[in-house]
């Protein structure tokens, strides 16, 4: 027989799933948030998203080339980072700053540590934090451009985000805070970054990811749940205060799209629970006690760093090992 046969280790069947397919699903899940950002902040939101995404993909292409490694833009992970990054920006952010964000995320955080699967912190969040400390005015730590304002003009109306207002509502007393209605919070008619304002769009995206089994619901649920519990306690049982906390700021965006990043979250079930609770805990502490109005990014980046430790302590016992048996006997 002249034909050549492939001889390789089993299995000789592979699933249809691919990295590209997973990243494509994430992009689809981000679509509602992108659409809503364009609805609220106009064409500039779209331009900003295109700039961050294009820069991210280009940065990935060039850095792989420079490092003489194979081209990985086909796996779409750089595009995902670009879109998520745009969702973290205020709509009036100068385009060149946005481009720097993409370059930091892809080149410094991702490729310098070895590319996909190797970065120890989430690229988009790290880039957001770096920009926040480097360009505090442009990144609008306190004043955010409002929806339906002309984001191309320099004097678009800005306002404090609900998070900044909530900081005034110590102990759950909402009377001092100037807050939008609950419905506006859900739909996104309030100040904030492009992608974080519309919680509804983010939740729809999250459900899509869970149904497609791209993410497990464990991290979003434990993360948001922990914040709910702590803000409920901090608000003295004021449910309204708690709901404002959940819908405001970057919680939904962070919990659904950034804390669930494969590379920087634990692989095993128990680890995911600990990770989610940890993120929720740090977010709550920063929001309630810290001088910053928002703590989602810092909570995720801090927990990212702890992932190897969490994984080490939550390794499942192999099938039938003695320890597992003893535990079972003890229970019975």
């Amino acid at each position: 027989m002249a034909k050549k046969l492939t001889v390789s280790a089993s299995p000789h069947a592979r699933s249809n799933e691919t990295t590209t397919g997973i990243m494509l699903d994430v992009l689809i899940a981000l679509l509602p948030a992108v659409v809503m950002s364009v609805v609220y902040f106009g064409t500039r939101a779209l331009v900003l998203t295109v700039v961050t995404t294009a820069t991210a993909v280009l940065a990935e292409f060039i850095s792989r080339k420079v490092m003489k490694r194979d081209n990985t833009i086909g796996d779409l992970s750089a595009a995902v980072t670009g879109v998520i990054l745009a969702m973290n920006f205020p709509a009036d952010l100068p385009l060149w700053i946005a481009a720097i964000g993409s370059i930091v995320a892809i080149v410094v955080v991702k490729q310098m540590f070895g590319g996909i699967g190797q970065n120890f912190v989430n690229p988009a969040i790290t880039a957001r934090i770096i920009l926040m400390v480097s360009f505090p005015t442009a990144m609008a730590l306190s004043e955010w451009v409002l929806p339906f304002e002309n984001t191309w003009s320099a004097d678009a109306l800005t306002s404090a985000t609900p998070m900044a207002e909530l900081a005034k509502a110590a102990g759950g007393d909402l009377s001092a805070a100037n807050l939008p209605s609950m419905m506006d919070m859900l739909l996104g008619k309030h100040g904030g970054s492009m992608g974080e304002v519309c919680s509804l769009a983010l939740i729809i995206g999250g459900l899509y990811l869970i149904i497609r089994k791209v993410i497990s619901p464990v991290i979003p649920l434990t993360f948001i749940g922990t914040v709910a519990v702590f803000t409920l306690i901090a608000g003295g049982g004021n449910v309204e205060y708690m709901v404002y906390q959940l819908l405001g700021g970057g919680l939904m965006l962070g919990a659904i799209f950034m804390a669930t990043d494969y590379t920087t979250s634990p692989i095993n079930f128990k680890g995911k629970i600990i990770f989610g609770i940890g993120c929720g805990l740090i977010t709550s502490v920063i929001r309630i006690f810290g001088s910053l109005p928002e703590g989602v990014s810092f909570s995720i980046i801090l927990m990212n760093i702890l992932v190897p430790q969490i994984e080490k302590f939550t390794v499942a016992k192999p099938f039938g090992s003695v320890k597992e048996k003893k535990e079972k006997e003890a229970k019975a």
């Binding site: 492939t6 592979r14 691919t18 796996d75």
Partner: peptide, 14 residues
């Protein structure tokens, strides 16, 4: 493609 899938880096999807 179900017999031979392109090998890429691990993304730690779990």
């Amino acid at each position: 493609k179900n017999i031979t899938k392109k090998e890429r880096d691990c993304i730690r999807c779990g």
